[in-house]
């Protein structure tokens, strides 16, 4: 049984992968090392964890106006997440998602931070704004 969340397209396209979930907002410049896709912000709960090839589920972006530049660099280094799911729309995350060029959705009908856990399998249909979640305990 999978769970379906419906929201709004930010960036189109389809991707699926394992979820990496945080309840903390993410800083781009000064918060992420784009060479490895690793969170480096002191005191962040994902410090030392890479989002490379994961479906990143998070509340939104914070910090410097260099946010898009860092995620742009991550895409070019091949360390970007496969897809992004977030709650709070800002110019930082909108531009960041656009230049990362991965399927991205927001405004979901259930809070993705409540529904999705790290390790769940997530399918993101950016164009239709649909997220399908297969809970990790149901994965074969």
């Amino acid at each position: 049984m999978s769970i379906i969340l419906r929201g709004r397209k930010v960036v189109g396209g389809f991707a699926e992968g394992e979820a990496l979930v945080t309840r903390q907002t993410i800083s781009g410049w000064g918060g992420v090392n784009p060479a490895t896709g690793t969170i480096i912000e002191s005191r962040h709960e994902l410090r030392g964890v890479s989002f490379k090839d994961k479906v990143l589920v998070f509340p939104g972006a914070k910090g410097s106006s260099g946010w898009s530049g860092i995620f742009h660099a991550a895409r070019m280094a091949g360390t970007a997440p496969k897809a992004m799911i977030f709650n709070e729309m800002t110019t930082k995350i909108a531009l960041g998602a656009v230049v990362t060029r991965v399927p991205s959705v927001t405004d979901l009908d259930q809070d993705p931070l409540d529904v999705i856990e790290t390790g769940d399998w997530v399918r993101v249909d950016g164009d239709r704004g649909i997220v399908e979640v297969i809970k990790k305990h149901e994965r074969a």
Partner: peptide
């Protein structure tokens, strides 16, 4: 708004921003 490198560069060439 807090813009980024790509949006400001595009605004320089077009005079437009969302």
């Amino acid at each position: 708004n807090v813009e980024g490198r790509e949006s400001t560069a595009a605004a320089m060439l077009t005079g437009k921003i969302p």
